[in-house]
Write a protein that binds this DNA or RNA. Structure first.
Lengths: 225, 225
DNA sequence: CCAAATCTTGACGCGCTCTTAACGTTCCCC
DNA sequence: GGGGAACGTTAAGAGCGCGTCAAGATTTGG
């Protein structure tokens, strides 16, 4: 199920979009201004953001820029302005598409499908990752270790999810912290140490000498199947 | 360098687009109808296709569908028709964006940049550098030497990163020092000597007579693959 | 409203990395 | 051939980052 964050200061538009999108099977969260939009995006990751440029608090382009500092989520911009300058500015700031009001709902939905199609095809569809000591089913959110199911807390799962989706790749501490706790926690490396210890205790055969969750001192962590 | 395939039956538009795109640094190939467009796309892979819907031989949506049977290349559609039905049809067939004529050139270029940004960030952009004795994977932050992984400290990695991203190019000591340690350390050439020795000990076959990390006396260092 | 689970926060010891200095070597210029 | 500058090498102390544990705060679930 795809999740959408709708950002607009006009309650009517928000409501209309939310109803339409839910009717299409999307999960919808909403925000009325830039600050709460950024907060919402950090709080719960979404598959796509629909963003109105004319927000009461922050300039729309600034919202895009600040979102792009830590997230690669696709952004579809709505705007009442037809000027090409605004379009260029928003697109170059990191937006993926731009529709001018008034727009047709069917066009919006089609562009949404186009964006989501591309963003989901690039992410791997392999849902199960196996190692010598445990198995992770990303779709079912299920972990098995020597026949036994292993329970994970939400935070534990978030970390595991990121690491396992990027096998052999070094994930920096900043990446993990911003993706799991939000950009404000980018320096709280303590949290990582605590939770990496938890993950190892639950998944590694020998938590003291980890074989799958490798620490790269000073840099971050790496998952090796 | 990014390559673009421009497909339109109007010679003026093709010519104008080709000139503009080449001016922006793109490599441009052109086609005047659907069949030759499909042929050209198969002949030489491109990074993005700009496709006019009103072609003389095949319907534009059909071109998209047939292209999508084997290629995931991003498609930007141009069309004179403003009807939302056409847009939905083209986007659902597999197009990534849709602009109606007449369009602003700066908007077209901005949308092109947006499409390319997304497509290049998902596909790994030649992130591996190979030499006769070791391999560096910049995305994974992984170094392999004769089958064995080589660990690097943060400082070591920073230096290696800069050198490897600029093959054959001379990097001055000041550049390295300011980028790794900060501008205040621009005169601490000692640090460089210590860390270059570390890099060579870890990566060179014969650290005494380096073949990849060359010292340019009085100037700086050079990485030669 | 209570209990359990989960998250946050702080403290401590250990190992590794960075820094720094001293010494040996090479190369170039006089 | 001699002197000096730049570079390479090595080693040791200081400091930081990591793993670990535990207790308080917060949220969740019944």
């Amino acid at each position: 199920m795809n999740s959408v964050l709708v950002v607009d200061d006009d309650p009517h538009i928000v409501r209309a979009l939310a109803i339409t999108l839910k009717g299409q099977g999307y999960t919808v969260t909403t925000a009325m201004d830039g600050e709460s939009a950024l907060h919402a995006a950090a709080q719960r990751p979404v598959n796509v953001v629909i963003l109105d440029l004319g927000l009461p608090d922050i300039d729309g382009t600034t919202v895009i820029t600040r979102l792009r500092e830590w997230s690669a989520v696709p952004i579809l911009v709505l705007s009442a302005r037809h000027g090409s300058g605004d379009k260029v500015e928003a697109l170059d700031a990191g937006a993926d598409d731009y529709i001018t009001k008034p727009f047709g709902l069917d066009e919006l939905l089609a562009r949404l499908r186009a964006i989501l199609r591309r963003s989901t095809e690039s992410s791997d569809e392999t849902t199960t990752i196996e190692t010598s000591s445990f198995t992770v089913d990303l779709a079912k959110r299920q972990i098995t270790k020597s026949g036994q199911d292993v329970r994970m807390t939400p935070t534990e799962w978030n970390i595991l999810d990121i690491l396992v989706r990027n096998p052999d790749k070094l994930i920096t501490q900043q990446q993990l912290l911003t993706e799991v706790w939000g950009p404000a926690y980018a320096k709280e490396a303590n949290y990582l140490r605590v939770y990496m210890a938890q993950l190892r205790r639950k998944l590694e055969v020998e938590p003291g000498t980890p074989r799958h969750f490798i620490t790269e001192p000073g840099m971050g962590y790496r998952f090796v199947p």
